[in-house]
Amino acid sequence: MKTKTRILVVDDHQLVIQGILCSLKEVGDFDVVTTNNCDEAFSLIKSNVKTNPFQLIFTDLSFDNLTEDTNLDGGEELIKAIKNNDFDIKIAVITGHTETNRVFNVINNLKPNAYLLKSKCDGTEIGFAIKKMMTNDYYYTHEIHQKIMRRNIIQIQMDEVAIHILKELPNHPKIANLEGIIKKVDGTFLKLRSIETKLSNLRIDLNANNNTDLVLKAKELGIID
């Protein structure tokens, strides 16, 4: 008799859990356990690792049911704990978070096997993600994949001069004030016309309407703080 794939679902909203359970039923016959907090999730993984281990976990990133006694205050901390203990379990994030900087940091630093969005996830996509994860592959829903690709492309295009301009821009009411502040790689100061050209190119790259929008998008992408 074939052993069922064991899945742990972690979310603090019961309606979300029910939705994920329904989607899982559409695509396979799994042994599914649910919990609404990360501490219990980690305890379940740890206590079952030798007897009846989980192969997959679906977890949100943010939890609203934290207390003073909470040790793992969110999905990111749970993922870190799993990886620090070298548990052999595939990790899928299923969340509402689409902020480019947070998405990039989660994927770049924690390397989950999948990143799904609650609002756009159905049985077909969950089934596809499970197949990918079970073959040691990765799956990011289309919107997340596009964000990561764009973030990586922009990161490659950014140089020290561009980042310096973006950091200084909010501190000065006029672009002309940046002349005498922004330096080229050789240490000489950038002329006003060159600064304006650089800003124009940055607005195109980040699809920004103006310099204020440019700074906001640079922050959202995590290019500047």
Rank of each mutant, 00 (worst) to 15 (best):
K111V: 13
I130G: 05
F58L: 07
F42H: 06
L178P: 05
E125Q: 11
T124I: 12
A218F: 05
P173A: 01
A81F: 11
N48R: 05
F63W: 08
V9F: 11
G222A: 07
S119K: 03
N71E: 08
I181W: 01
K219F: 09
N211M: 01
Y115M: 10
D69V: 08
K191N: 10
P53G: 00
Y140D: 08
L117T: 13
I148R: 07
I182Y: 00
D11P: 10
N171V: 05
P112I: 06
I91K: 01
M134K: 08
N136F: 09
M134I: 09
I148G: 03
H13T: 10
D39L: 08
G75Q: 03
A92R: 04
I223Y: 03
M1F: 13
I94M: 04
H142D: 14
E179Q: 10
I223D: 00
R6Q: 05
E160V: 13
A129E: 07
L169T: 11
H164M: 13
D205E: 07
N177W: 10
D11N: 10
H172F: 06
I153L: 11
I20S: 03
N152S: 13
K217A: 06
N211D: 14
K198M: 13
A41R: 02
N209D: 15
T34Y: 12
L206I: 06
E99W: 01
T197A: 14
I163D: 12
K83M: 01
K147G: 07
L199F: 09
P112S: 05
I181T: 11
I45D: 09
F104K: 15
D205R: 09
H13W: 01
L66D: 11
I79D: 04
S47E: 14
G180K: 04
K90R: 13
S62L: 14
I154Q: 07
I148W: 07
K118P: 01
I57V: 15
L72Y: 02
L190A: 04
N71D: 02
F54C: 04
V32E: 10
G28F: 07
D213N: 07
Q157V: 05
N109W: 02
I195L: 05
K219C: 01
I89K: 02
N210K: 02
I130L: 11
N152I: 11
L192G: 06
F30N: 11
T95D: 05
K191F: 05
N152G: 06
I224F: 04
L15Y: 13
F189D: 10
K111D: 08
N105L: 11
I82G: 00
L214I: 13
G96F: 13
V49Y: 15
L61S: 10
G96D: 08
H172N: 06
E77P: 00
D31E: 10
T95N: 09
L202H: 04
V106C: 15
V215S: 02
C22K: 15
L178V: 09
F58H: 14
E220A: 11
T34W: 04
N210C: 06
